[in-house]
Structures are given as structure tokens and as C-alpha cells.
Write a protein that binds this DNA or RNA. Structure first.
Lengths: 174, 174
DNA sequence: ACGAGCATGTAACCTGTTACATGATTCA
DNA sequence: TGAATCATGTAACAGGTTACATGCTCGT
């Protein structure tokens, strides 16, 4: 479905999409090369995309079809079929009582640091993208920046939360 | 791995764990009945857990072993092997430029409402758990509440973010 | 005695991952 | 001409889902 969405923005080959997945998309929806090519074949079989050009080296340029656009709109509107939400990091929090308190504190401190590092990484990315693309005019760039903003806020929240839990742990010590 | 963690807190049968997954655990790490039982057999084969009692109806009560505790500590300390982070909702944001602006605004408004609904649900859950369990004394309850707090903050952040994106969309309109 | 709930398991299927495999083109 | 990169594909496996299947036991 991610592939269909990207093809809605502009036509491209499997290889093109792969690059997109490695760059901007990787933070949101990672996909492997293998996965991508079989997905493209499946979408083409279903008539949601079609080959619009064949270049050198057997390069197949795909384009979204009318049926594909309809399917994309349908998917956007209905979050029911989403894969269930599983967070390994939240599971760890649940089980933090099972390891020595010293290690638990260490774990939370690392969470704080990792969130800050992630914020630095995303900020840099935002500055790069935000300046080259004219997010004022381009819808796709506007929403890509909104997604990036989400990531920034998420990590800020996470750092603050881990910090607060640490403080509460200190408060509990006798 | 989630099953191993729960057995570290207290011994129990597959059926017992299933109830835990349906209740408190469901928000963090959903698992199906089928999955759970085969997982338990695999853990037992690997020597990470063992049957410590057999009750009526073939009820097998499992208990974590020393090897299991070691494995759990190892897993807690190393987040490298986590499944990749995939968020269908963030992907939707990325693709929001592909649907009519009216629908995009509608989508964001629904995000705000759903976050608020989720906050209400989690608040209720927190009040129930926070009063019965003495989170002051019990480590497990303390960290379960911390995980719940994470969920609350996440949804608050999400509502605020969606609200702000909406405002920025309005600002862009000519 | 019978229904609700306890308790476990199997089979078919789908998705995603890693590793393997192949060949074409460009450019230095 | 040889290396880098373009470009696609297959096979084996791991993890999760749904649906199917079976039997025991407790309380009324």
C-alpha cells in the first residue's frame, strides 16, 4: 500500500521507489527490495498500477491507475485494517520491574539520550528538506514536513516522559 | 518474548497469560491464543521456562527458569533486534496530499477526536488500576502505570499535533 | 444433564526478512 | 575492460492471523 501511495505522487520504477524507501520513507514505513518488487507485481496484477514505460536494463516505470487512486482513497479513509500496534520499547517498560533497579534507571537514561539524538537527526533532516522544497506551494512536501514534525514531537514527549519516570523512581526510594 | 516477561512476574498457564494479553497487555503487545501456545512450547523446548505444576483439564502451569531470566535481561538491554517501526497512521499523513483537501482536513479532525477518546479510555483504566494496586509498593504496578502514562502523553501529543497541522493548512489557503 | 467457561492444540495462509542469483549499462 | 551501479527476481524461513478442532470440569 505504501508503494501505491508513492506511485500516486509520481510514476517510477521499483528501483526508484526503493531509493525513496531508503531515504525519506524509512522512518515511517521501511520496506525491503524483495518485498517491494513482489508488491509491485501484485499491484499490477490487481490493475491498481500499470507499466507506462520500459527503459534500459528492463527498467519498468509504473504509474497509478484510476482504480488504484480509488483504492488509495478507500484505504486512507478506513484505518480498521491496520496492522495491530506493537511496541517493543513499551513492552520493555512493562517489564522494567523484572531487572535490577540500577539497570532499569540506566535503561531510562538511555531512552532520554536516544530521543535527544533522534531529535537532532530529524531537525537536521527538516532543515535540509524544508529549505530545498517549497513546502508552501507543494502539498506533498507540506505533509512530509508534518510527518517529520510528528516524529520530533514524539521524541520530545518520550524524553520528557522517561525523565519524569526516573524522577518518580527516585521519589520512591527509601 | 512478551510471554517470557509475563512469566517472570509470576507463574501461570497459557490460559492465564491469554487473559493478561486481553486485558492490560493488549494496548502494548497484542497476541493471539494460537500464537501464545506455540510460543510457550518453543520457550519450554529452549529451556527458558518449565512446567512447575499440572492442574485439572491438562492445565500446565509454567514458571521461568534461571536461563529464562538471563535471556530476559539480555533482551531488555539490547533493542537492536526489535521489529522495524511501521506506522500506518504516519504513512497516511505522508500521503494526505493525494486526496482532496476537504477529506484531508476531515481525516485530521478525526485524529483529534480519536486521540481524545483514547485519552478518556486510558484515564479511566488508570484510575481503576491506580487505586486497587498499591503502585507505591509494587514495582510491576509502578511500571505498568508508567506505560499507561506513556500512552496518555502520546495521545495528547497526537491531538495537539493534528490540531496544529489543521491550523497550518488553513493558513496556506488563498 | 447441560451449558459456560477452562484449556490446549493444528492447518492453511499471508506478510516480511535474508540470502542467493542474474544480467544490463555506464563510465573511467 | 572492469568496477560500480542499475534493475529485477526467486527460495527458504520466521512470525503472525484466522479458522477449525477437541476435550474436561464446574456450577446450577
Amino acid at each position: 500500500m505504501a508503494a501505491l501511495g508513492l506511485l500516486a505522487q509520481r510514476p517510477g520504477s521499483g528501483y526508484d521507489l526503493l531509493k525513496l524507501f531508503e531515504n525519506s520513507m524509512a522512518n515511517v514505513w521501511p520496506a525491503t527490495q524483495s518485498q517491494l518488487y513482489s508488491e509491485l507485481n501484485k499491484l499490477a496484477d490487481g490493475g491498481l498500477i500499470e507499466v507506462c514505460d520500459i527503459g534500459p536494463r528492463g527498467r519498468k516505470v509504473y504509474r497509478i491507475t484510476t482504480a488504484g487512486r480509488a483504492e488509495l482513497r478507500r484505504w486512507m479513509a478506513d484505518p480498521d485494517e491496520d496492522p495491530p500496534f506493537r511496541s517493543a520499547s513499551l513492552l520493555r517498560v512493562f517489564l522494567l520491574g523484572q531487572i535490577p533497579a540500577r539497570q532499569a534507571r540506566q535503561h531510562l537514561k538511555e531512552t532520554v539520550e536516544q530521543s535527544h539524538a533522534e531529535i537532532a537527526r530529524l531537525s537536521e533532516l527538516r532543515d535540509k528538506v524544508g529549505l530545498t522544497d517549497s513546502a508552501q506551494a507543494d502539498d506533498d512536501a507540506f505533509f512530509a514536513l508534518a510527518a517529520l514534525d510528528y516524529g520530533l514531537r514524539l521524541n520530545a514527549m518520550q524524553a520528557e516522559w522517561a525523565h519524569d519516570v526516573l524522577a518518580r523512581m527516585e521519589g520512591r526510594r527509601k
